[in-house]
Write a protein that binds this DNA or RNA. Structure first.
Lengths: 227, 227
DNA sequence: TCAAAGGTTTAGTATATACTAAATTATTCT
DNA sequence: AGAATAATTTAGTATATACTAAACCTTTGA
C-alpha cells in the first residue's frame, strides 16, 4: 500500500508540510503561506514552491494568494504522520525511559524512518493507546481521530474548575517546567484569579496555589466537565 | 559531540558510503569504486563524485584510479553506524517481535534517524549485547570491535566440525531458509561431504543430515574450536 | 612493448529543496 | 476609492545527489 493514490513517492519534507498544514488548519480551514513558513522555520518563498509541488501531486489544494488546504489524500498522509509521531513518543516514554519533554525531537526524526509495521508493533506493545504523553489524541489506523473541544486555560473564567488535557507544545523547557509545576494532563485546576492584558493567573491545584503566566496558560488545553 | 572533527555535517548518503567502505575493506584495505558501486547499487560515476566529496571532508583517502580507504574520522563514523545498525536489529528482535530475516531493511532506515541517546538506551535495555541476531559483533561506544577470524562453511574441509557464528547477508529469503534449516549462529555442524566446483555440501546437524548449496555455505561464517 | 579491454573519472544533465531579491496581488486605512 | 502596507508568488541562485555519455588511466596479454 503506497502513501497516496498518485504514484509519486513523498519525501520527508513533504510529510512535514502536510503534517504542519493539518496542525495549523485543525483539519479543515485554509492555511496561509506565512503561517506555514513560521511553523516550519522556512521562508514564505520556499513554502510557496513546495506547496505548488504538493498541489501537483494532488495532496493539497492551493488558491494562490488565498491559502492551502489538504485534499483527502493529503489528510490521510498527515494523519498517518501524526499517528506515527504520537505513538513513537508514547513508546519512548513507556518503554525506553524518556520523559515527556525529551521525546519530541527524537519522534520528529523517527516518524520519517519507521515502517507501518514497526509503528503497529509499537502500538500493540503499548496496548493501542488513544492519547500520547502530552494528552494529544492518536489517530487510529484508518485515520479516525477523536478530537474534543478543549479550552486553553488562559480562556477559563475565574472561579471555574477544569481538567488539564493537553500540553500544546513540543518545547522541552516549557514541558519540563509544566511538569515540575504539576501542570500535566489529568490534573484538575481551579482558576482563582486571572489578571487582564495577558497577565498571570492564580490557580488552585488540589489545595496548593500556583501562579502561571499567560503564555503557558494558553498552551494548556482543558476540558470543563468529566469529558 | 559532532559526528566528526571537521564542522561539515554528514548526510545519510555519506553515512552509507562510509559503512559500505568499512564492510568491503574489513577495516583497512583500499576499496574499488566499482565494488562500492555494486554494494550500494549505484553507478561507478556517482560513487566517484561522492568519494571526492567525502575526501574533501577528511573522511576517506582517495588515490584516483587506485581506491578509497577510511581515515580515522571516517572509520569512527562507520563503526558508529555499524553499532547503530546492529543494536537496532537486536532491539527489534528482542523487544518488538521481529525475526532475524525481517530486521535489516528497518534498521537500514532507522540507523540514520536515531540519536546517540536512543541507541544507548536500547543497548542498556538489551544488556549491552556484543553480538546481533545474525552473530555479527557490535562495536562498542568508543569504536572497539572484536572481530574473530571466521571461516566460510564452504571452506571447511570434509570431516571437520565447526560452529556457525554469523550469517553474512541481509537477504530475508536466504535468512528465512537458513533458520528453517536450523543453520543459525551457535549451531555446531560437521561437514560430511563436499562436492567440488561450487557443488553442494552434506552436513551433520546434531545427528540430522542436511544438504546445502555452495552459495549459502559461503555466507555461513564459522569458528573451528570453542572460540 | 604496445594495443585492447576494463575500470575510473570528468563533463554535462536532472531532481529536490532551500535561499534572496524582485514582482505581484490583497488588504487596510484615510 | 485610492494609496500605503502587508502578504504572496516568481525568478534566479546554490547545494546535494544521482544519472548517462565521453574521456581517461591501468592492466593484461599477445
Amino acid at each position: 500500500m503506497t502513501a497516496h493514490s498518485s504514484g509519486e513517492p513523498l519525501t520527508p519534507s513533504g510529510e512535514d508540510y502536510l503534517k504542519a498544514i493539518y496542525r495549523l488548519s485543525s483539519g479543515e480551514d485554509p492555511v496561509s503561506t506565512t503561517g506555514l513558513a513560521l511553523r516550519l522555520a522556512l521562508t514564505p518563498a520556499s513554502v510557496s514552491g513546495m506547496v505548488k509541488r504538493l498541489s501537483e501531486q494532488g495532496l493539497v489544494e492551493h488558491s494562490p494568494y488565498r491559502g492551502v488546504r489538504l485534499t483527502p489524500d493529503g489528510r490521510r498522509i498527515a494523519l498517518r504522520m501524526l499517528r506515527r509521531h504520537r505513538l513513537i513518543e508514547s513508546y519512548l516514554v513507556g518503554f525506553l525511559g524518556y520523559t515527556w519533554d525529551t521525546v519530541h525531537d527524537e519522534a520528529e526524526r523517527l516518524e520519517h524512518a519507521v515502517s507501518d509495521g514497526l509503528v503497529e508493533r509499537m502500538a500493540v506493545a503499548l496496548g493501542n493507546p488513544r492519547f500520547d504523553p502530552h494528552g494529544d489524541p492518536i489517530p487510529d489506523v484508518d485515520g479516525g481521530i477523536v478530537d474534543f473541544i478543549h479550552v486553553p486555560l488562559s480562556d477559563v473564567r475565574t472561579g471555574e474548575t477544569v481538567t488539564i488535557r493537553r500540553a500544546d507544545t513540543g518545547d522541552a523547557g516549557r514541558l519540563r517546567y509544566l511538569a515540575s509545576a504539576g501542570l500535566v494532563p489529568g490534573t484538575p485546576v481551579k482558576v482563582v484569579d486571572a489578571q487582564p492584558f495577558q497577565g498571570p493567573m492564580k490557580l488552585d491545584l488540589a489545595g496548593a496555589e500556583r501562579i502561571v503566566g499567560h503564555e503557558l496558560a494558553a498552551l494548556l488545553l482543558c476540558s470543563r466537565d468529566g469529558t
